[in-house]
Design a protein around this nucleic acid. Structure first.
Length: 637
RNA sequence: GCCGAUGUAGCUCAGCCGGUAGAGCAACUGAUUCGUAAUCAGUAGGUCGCCAGUUCAAUUCUGGCCAUCGGCUCCA
């Protein structure tokens, strides 16, 4: 009995069962095999050597697809694991998946690996690739697999096998040369198919991502179909480094982090502070437009209040404490407490709700040393924080309005973002029912707004579930900025009430939310997003006056006076240098407009703006230039 | 906090097997007065992250600490 095979072009073939997918494809379109790394049979990814036993719809997994590249990288990780074991006898393997831009493999070994070892490992990898070993899949009973890896002393693999659910009776292993790995596959047909790879870095990583477990050594690498795409990627990494906000922060004189002051504490220089002021100023107005009221709480609050809120029990490790007049105080790590006390200062009616309290609130959190990172992860930061107190009925529209606000704000800056819904964590307060209500409220709002999101189980705050909005930095690392957290618990703990239409007391719900998140982090992402070349409305310096010779200084001073009087942020470059030099300096500082001032301009009473992109705007009167900049600010350009 | 790497002039980086340090840019001084990405010459600038130890002698070797970088864990 023949079986029916349907190829990607819908062509059908009747073949004898028992031939491999590769053979079947070869009959269909031999050329397709040149760039095929694996194949999908009835929607399931398998090796090209997969034996066809039943009617099958076949599609090719090509190296040019994301899936194909991922399979290639996974195979490279196996080759690397073998190479590491060959070079470092006794190294134990654990897991080695492909990841977004490459792959890694985690090892246990008595000595630390360093990047100096890469040359040796890569050399051995090239030998393995040159030998063109086939990847051979073998299905084993679970017991046989345990025995196999026990014999090899691969206790991490044994642990993985032990933890499989009881229903799993058969597992697969992949072999090439003398290397065997527990693996679902699929893999490329043979090691010789690897054309371009590079090991990138070593790092510690806890076994199974749990800090209670042993720390293994992770080697990161990447691989591509061809040498030139690999080189392009490496070049891209170099380019990304130039966008690093820590580097640009120094080059553009925006901020410093000083060892004498302490880690994770930011000192804003004039230009960084100007950028920050512009962002905050814009944001305040956006809040007023949306019915928020500005408030401000104190920096330190008595410890008893933090006990009442649950922060002392659940957040203490992240808090700083101090003592004043024999009274214990906690330095605020969040802004919500004062906002609740504002709510409580009066009897509230359902007619008053929702109340939206907004505070650019500076908080302190004791972050672990190893996580500090430029502006992105600091110990003192300012949140554009708000707490919305509303009735349960208002919850949906409030959440949706916040999500729209976030979307509007991100649109102003041209950010793409990802949305995650985080559910109840282990160490949390509140009843199951409240968590259920809160989570559903968030989820419904996302659905009503037709937002794509993923669910992050157990990643919520201790008092409630949250919607997180994540932005990416230059190296594609994701940073949480905006967040909406739904909280039934703190209103309970603080006994917040409102009088309903029925004359009875009711409990309001509280939303915690930030739009930009932490101003510091947002600025960090923003700097990388624009690579330091801020649009005119955000640029700390919008224009710089460049004199051709000393004799143009008086006119430049006059223009300067007019520009700053009109609110244009302007600098003077009057030093005795050639114009080319001044332009280069201004270009490096990424200033949007350079105003050239020479004889022509003095005579005609004009300025000649040169845009950052090199474009010459011709002669403009000072008034015209002011209008141009003001219009760009107005339009957020 | 954990694993690894790194720390030399304001910045970017050299400096071998121990004999108290250099380059480019920036700064300063002078000359030049110049039209769209670097004018020339000169000068100055360093407790070699900090603290111990080994040594006749430590930027160099050893230990501890601090900070930074890449990850892990955690997070705005």
């Amino acid at each position: 009995m023949n079986i029916k095979i349907i190829f990607p072009d819908k062509k059908e073939a009747a073949i004898k069962p028992g031939i491999t997918a590769m053979e079947a494809i070869s009959e269909w379109q031999k050329k397709a095999l040149d760039s095929a790394v694996a194949v999908k049979v009835n929607g399931i990814a398998v090796d090209l050597s997969y034996i066809l036993k039943e009617d099958s719809i076949i599609s090719i997994i090509d190296i040019s697809s994301a899936e194909g590249l991922s399979i290639l990288r996974h195979s490279i990780s196996h080759v690397m694991a073998q190479a590491v074991q060959n070079v470092f006898a006794g190294a134990k393997v654990s897991i080695g998946p492909s990841i977004e831009d490459g792959f890694y493999y985690d090892f246990e070994y008595k000595e630390p690996f360093t990047t100096d070892d890469f040359a040796k490992i890569e050399k051995r990898m090239r030998e393995i690739i040159a030998a063109d070993y086939s990847f051979i899949r073998e299905d084993l009973s679970r017991a046989a697999a345990v025995k196999l890896f026990e014999k090899k002393g691969e206790n991490y693999k044994v642990e993985l096998l032990d933890d499989l659910s009881a229903e799993v009776k058969v597992v697969s292993v992949y072999k090439h040369d003398d290397y065997v790995d527990l693996c679902r596959g699929p893999h490329i047909p043979s090691t010789g198919r690897i054309k371009a790879f590079k090991l990138l870095s070593v790092a510690g990583a806890y076994w199974r991502g749990d800090e209670k477990n042993k720390m293994l050594q992770r080697i990161y690498g990447t691989g591509f179909a061809e040498e030139n795409t690999l080189n392009e990627y490496l070049k891209l990494l170099e380019e990304a480094k130039k966008r690093d906000h820590r580097r640009l922060g120094k080059e553009l004189d925006l901020f410093q982090i000083n060892e004498e002051v302490g880690p994770g504490l930011i000192i804003f220089h004039p230009k960084g502070m100007m950028l920050r002021y512009i962002i905050e100023d814009w944001e305040r107005k956006e809040h007023w437009k949306r019915g928020y009221e500005m408030v401000m709480g104190p920096q330190i609050l008595k410890v008893d209040l933090w006990k009442k809120s649950g922060h002392f029990d659940h957040y203490r490790d992240n808090m700083y404490f101090t003592e004043v007049d024999e009274q214990a105080y906690g330095i605020k790590p969040m802004n919500c407490l004062a906002h609740m006390l504002i709510y409580k200062s009066k009897i509230r009616s359902y007619r008053d709700l929702p109340l939206r309290y907004f505070e650019l609130g500076t908080v302190h959190r004791h972050e672990k040393t190893g996580v500090l990172h430029g502006l992105m992860r600091v110990r003192q930061f300012t949140q554009d924080d708000a707490h919305i107190l509303c009735t349960p009925q208002q919850l949906n529209s409030e959440i949706r309005a916040i999500a729209d606000f976030v979307n509007y704000a991100m649109g102003i800056f041209g950010f793409e973002y990802e949305v995650e819904l985080s559910t109840r964590p282990e160490n949390s307060i509140g009843s199951d029912r409240d968590w259920e209500l809160a989570t559903t409220a968030l989820e419904n709002a996302l659905k009503d707004n037709k937002t794509n999101y993923i669910v992050n189980e157990g990643d919520g705050a201790f008092y409630g579930p949250k919607i997180d909005f994540k932005l990416k930095d230059a190296l594609k690392r994701k940073w949480q900025c905006a967040t909406i957290q739904c909280d039934f618990t703190l209103p309970e703990r603080f006994d917040l009430n409102y009088i309903g239409a029925d004359g009875e007391r009711h409990r309001p719900v509280m939303l915690h939310r930030v739009i930009l998140g932490a101003v510091e982090r947002f600025m960090g992402v923003l700097i990388e997003h624009y690579a330091g070349a801020f649009p005119v409305w955000l640029s700390p310096t919008q224009s710089v006056l460049l004199t051709v010779t000393d004799k143009h200084i008086p006119y430049a001073e006059k223009v300067y006076g007019e520009l700053i009087a009109a609110g244009i942020r302007c600098e003077k470059s009057l030093e005795n240098e050639k114009l080319g030099y001044k332009i280069r300096q201004a270009q490096i500082q990424k200033i949007p407009f350079m105003l050239v001032i020479g004889d022509k301009e003095v005579e005609a009473n004009t300025v000649s703006p040169r845009a950052r992109d090199g474009q010459n705007l011709g002669a403009l009167s000072v008034k015209e230039f002011i209008a141009l900049v003001q219009e760009m600010c107005e339009k957020k350009k």
